[in-house]
Write a protein that binds this DNA or RNA. Structure first.
Length: 755
DNA sequence: AAGCAGAGCGCG
DNA sequence: AAAGCGCGCTCTGCTT
């Protein structure tokens, strides 16, 4: 029986969602009744002073900008843009969430015309839409021509989603250019804000352009009067176009500049992968994922109990400890009761009250997992440290996932709409936020079960099996590694077999305990090599001596010598060219690799006598690592010399060489697969929708009856995305009703599961 | 009240 | 010695 027939208005839902997101992102509560009036007064006051301050800033002295406030004007402008062939477009909005906020104005620029501003949703201080603006439907009508234009954006996904959710466009278009993505491809080592980039590359001494927050602080754009705001807005479109004009020569595969700078492959990657991905990711975020709220509530209750128990457990153990006397000031810093979430307070307990000594000289007052485990192994306050670890584990799950994720679910769609950043990592990898869907616990079954497929549908989880080690095999071209993959062997067992001269079958995980152990150790060594891990670190991980670790690594490199050579080649490439490239041409610039190990300055920053510098240089090169600090201090005392130690930075850059190529190539491949999947007609027909990307894994959803068919296509596409590799790729797929749920069997045979 | 760095920890 | 690569989130403790 329905009782409440009154549906919330769009405005109410918007408000409610905003509150939910705010609450979820900052636990601090603001009494809402008082805050509304206060906030309004605050905005009014701020706005007044800002506009006063910006009197000189927002003046269109050269008549470069204009406002469009009638439908015909907008149609004309778009017509001109169609003739010109390209148009920069940018939106001003009430905020940063496309599903909550709305477009306030459209900023357009096409060469040969003035940059223009179309006001869409400017309001008075009470939120009432101001008169004199185009009707929404007229703008939407005019924008139907948008498909015919080559559109240039700065972060197209944001503007496209904003326009769609504000009702300005019906469906997404592929951008012609995205200066944000292009900037990442051209230099991943800088900030990628429009103003910052424009200031660096397009500003010819015209004075710096300020970013939004510097001008308007936190005032939403709808409150900015149109007659001031239009200048800021229109300028954005102009700047976007000018940035595009600067960038295009580098990423046009036909241009000479592009070719001479070895950017041709990067340009193809940009055109054929990165740009087509934008619309696909926008659709993915719109789709979102369902969260089982009832289940989540039960989970929260359950874990609340566990958390309390764990907390009491810790306090019980603290009570049993023999705590020494503490100096007054330290005792003050210690809360009563001690805050278990505070590393500082915990450190006082460990290192001042209990007088322990950290096993890690780098972190003399650390309280991290490694240090705790060390004490547990040594049977020092074992139960106390175990209790702390247990508490932390539950606390983490609770705060980051169990309470947070249901709170982020939208009222209007009933789903969670995460945010993927297509160029989140400098290697080209994705990142995800609000929430981060790429670090949802994988071993803890409870949490992933919160995510459920729609009624009648299933999730298809498709992951590359050993994506990165296969790429290592490809880039090193190592005969043995390549052959192992071509013959479908278990790579780690195969390596063990070669290293120790034992039959392959006897090195498989299930053959013996010894085989399993060796396989595990080699797996860690290979992963370590891909991350540039050192001997000491491998030894620590495997709990063996440095000599033993060195032995295994030496054996690996002598048997698989092309791997060692590949590392050296990439380091050489980075040193001579300044960058390394992925298989598909994405670059990772590593200028730090060419830093001198040490720099010498006088205390005033001047030049140092070369003989003195050389004396200290040879001293430092011969020194053990714990002597360095002394030598540097001595130089300061005796010769008034400041020595900058860059060896750490250089070593870091060296480790990144191979890793960037492997991680970056993996990112390329997964992205290529996403484009193929997102554009596949057969999958579209089956109603398959992509939902998530977790680096080597693509998760989507479709009706249960067709999942095998969809999975077959996905496997085919994911494998073909790795075209050009000399090793085969393998993809495992499973279908589940919940993210971590019981697998749905394939008709006929049991489906394979990846590990 | 808001922003920031550091510690710690979740994932591939 | 930034001794293992790439991320984002939560919490503390401090600054503005």
């Amino acid at each position: 029986m329905k009782i409440d027939l009154k549906l919330p208005s769009e405005e109410e839902i918007r408000k409610k969602n905003k509150e939910i997101v705010k609450k979820a992102s900052s636990p601090k509560r603001v009494p809402s009744s008082i805050s509304a009036d206060k906030k309004r007064a605050g905005i009014e006051k701020k706005l007044f002073s800002i506009l006063e301050e910006l009197k000189d800033e927002l003046i269109d002295s050269e008549g470069k900008f204009a406002v469009i406030n009638d439908a015909e004007g907008l149609r004309d402008y778009l017509q001109k843009a169609e003739e010109a062939g390209v148009m920069a477009i940018d939106t001003e909005t009430t905020g940063l969430d496309p599903m909550i906020d709305r477009v306030v104005g459209l900023c357009l620029y096409t060469p040969g015309e003035r940059a223009v501003y179309v006001s869409v949703n400017h309001t008075d201080i009470d939120g009432n839409r101001l008169p004199g603006q185009l009707e929404m439907k007229d703008i939407a009508e005019a924008l139907k021509a948008i498909g015919k234009l080559k559109l240039v954006f700065h972060n197209a996904k944001f503007d496209l989603r904003m326009m769609k959710h504000s009702g300005l466009i019906e469906s997404y278009v592929d951008p012609f250019w995205d200066t944000y993505i292009a900037a990442n491809l051209l230099n991943e080592n800088e900030l990628h804000g429009l103003k910052v980039l424009w200031n660096s590359y397009c500003n010819e001494g015209k004075g710096k352009v300020a970013a939004y927050d510097d001008l308007f602080e936190k005032i939403p754009f709808n409150y900015i009067p149109i007659e001031k705001g239009y200048i800021y807005g229109a300028k954005d479109a102009l700047m976007t176009y000018e940035l595009y004009s600067f960038q295009r020569k580098y990423l046009d595969p036909e241009s000479d500049v592009c070719k001479s700078r070895n950017l041709r492959d990067a340009a193809l990657l940009y055109r054929d992968v990165e740009l087509p991905l934008i619309r696909i990711i926008a659709e993915m975020e719109d789709e979102g994922i369902y969260v089982d709220k009832d289940y989540a509530e039960k989970l929260e209750e359950e874990y609340n109990g566990k958390l309390k128990e764990a907390q009491e457990g810790v306090y019980d153990e603290i009570a049993k400890l023999q705590i020494g006397e503490l100096p007054e000031e330290l005792f003050k810093k210690l809360g009563n009761p001690i805050n278990l979430n505070s590393p500082t307070q915990l450190a006082i307990l460990l290192y001042d009250a209990l007088k322990l000594e950290s096993p890690d000289r780098k972190m003399p007052r650390g309280t991290g997992e490694k240090i705790l485990k060390h004490y547990i192994e040594k049977n020092i306050h074992r139960d106390f440290f175990r209790a702390i670890m247990e508490y932390r584990k539950i606390k983490k799950l609770m705060t980051t996932y169990i309470t947070k994720i249901p709170a982020l679910v939208r009222q209007d769609t009933g789903k969670l709409h995460y945010n993927f950043n297509q160029y989140g990592a400098r290697t080209g990898r994705f990142s995800s936020k609000n929430p981060n869907m790429q670090n949802i616990p994988a071993k803890n079954e409870d949490i992933r079960k919160m995510f459920v497929a729609e009624d009648g549908k299933v999730f298809i989880c498709a992951d590359y099996s050993q994506q990165e080690p296969r790429i290592l095999a490809h880039v090193s071209k190592d005969k043995n590694l390549v052959r192992a993959y071509q013959e479908g062997k278990d790579i780690y067992s195969w390596v063990v077999s070669l290293l120790y001269g034992r039959p392959y079958e006897e090195c498989l995980e299930g053959f013996s305990e010894e085989a399993a152990k060796r396989r595990y150790m080699i797996k860690q060594v290979i992963l370590g090599i891909m991350y540039g891990r050192g001997v000491a670190s491998v030894a620590e991980e495997l709990k063996i001596s440095k000599q033993e670790a060195q032995g295994i690594i030496d054996l690996f490199f002598s048997t698989f010598n092309s791997v060692e050579k590949t590392i050296k080649d990439y380091i050489y490439m980075a040193k001579t060219m300044g960058y390394v490239s992925t298989v598909y041409g994405r670059k990772r610039r590593l200028p730090e690799i060419s830093f001198s190990d040490y720099e010498f300055y006088t205390l005033q920053g001047g030049q140092v006598n070369p003989a003195v510098a050389n004396y200290y240089l040879s001293l430092l090169n011969r020194a053990a690592w714990d002597e360095k600090e002394m030598i540097i201090e001595q130089a300061r005392q005796d010769h008034k010399i400041r020595i900058v130690d860059n060896t750490g930075i250089v070593a870091y850059a060296k480790r990144q060489c191979l890793n960037s190529v492997i991680q970056g190539t993996a990112a390329d491949i997964t992205k290529r697969a996403m484009v193929l999947i997102g554009n596949d007609k057969r999958l579209k027909k089956l109603g398959y929708k992509m939902l998530l990307q977790v680096h080597d894994e693509i998760i989507g959803t479709c009706r249960e009856e067709v999942w095998e068919e969809a999975a077959d296509i996905i496997v085919e596409l994911m494998i073909s995305a790795a075209d050009g590799l000399i090793v085969p790729m393998e993809v495992d797929t499973i279908a589940v009703k919940r993210w971590y749920g019981e697998e749905i069997e394939r008709r006929g045979k049991r489906c394979e599961t990846g590990n």
